[in-house]
Design a protein around this nucleic acid. Sequence first.
DNA 1: ACCAGCTCCTGCTTGC
DNA 2: TGCAAGCAGGAGCTGG
Length: 283
Amino acid sequence: MPELPEVETVRQGLLPAMENRRISHAEVRRPDLRWPFPPRMAERLTGARVTALGRRSKYILASLDTGQTLLIHLGMSGRMTISGDAPGSFHRDHPLRDKHDHVVLTMDSGARITFNDARRFGAMDLIATPAVETHPLLAKLGPEPLGNTFHAGVLARAFSGKRAPVKSALLDQRIVAGLGNIYVCEALWRAGISPMRQAGRIGQARLETLTQTIRDVLAEAIEAGGSSLRDYRQADGELGYFQHRFAAYDREGQPCRTQDCDGVIERIVQSGRSTFHCRRCQR
DNA sequence: ACCAGCTCCTGCTTGC
DNA sequence: TGCAAGCAGGAGCTGG
């Protein structure tokens, strides 16, 4: 499911169709996803103009001229795609509805934005804009990994004394926001750090390296339009391409790509999640 | 406080 | 074109 690069790619794809556009019609086709939708969501969205389309961690935030902000989370299988009579449309010739099309926003341009989520782990909420930062889903998030407030000192402080494996620590959204299973595996491989290593036992120099590999892998993935494994699509329906550049994730049994390393990528399970790593060059 | 495991849901892949 | 088990990118909750 969508991690930070996928959500950012979707946001960028939605931007021309949504920003400074008015929602002329909102259709909400079921009462809930992971949680119930906020009361009267369709009515509250209808007529609102989207003044900005932002992102925090894996959440898309649409600021509305009604003083509210629409929070969108794609969960594991959520898609936001554009269709209808608009540039960048997805399936312009196949406007048929899917049974997992849960919310459809029709913009004043004629573009339709469809939220499709087979597994329904996604979520939407409407928040008074001044209260966005204190929303329960956002309040405890750590720094944005591509922002200025993320640096090795942040990791050093957060990891200090931590006995949990660094893999688990990086998945903790309170430490750094937006990483998921794929990009944690990739960043640790690039940094040459074992996913099993206790977070509190990584030296300063290696934390500097890790900070940089996290930034690099996320930026490259955004550049490639994200990673499409199963459900993920960009807003225009295109696949992402970063999966072709995975060095660790989903490469069990394949040769490690580190220069001069003759190791093999192994799959282990940590906290119930697959981890892919090379035990020879990740220490 | 910390951490591992379970859970929500559907659908795809794998093994019989 | 059968069936059941296992697995999947998130993240809140429970209980040790």
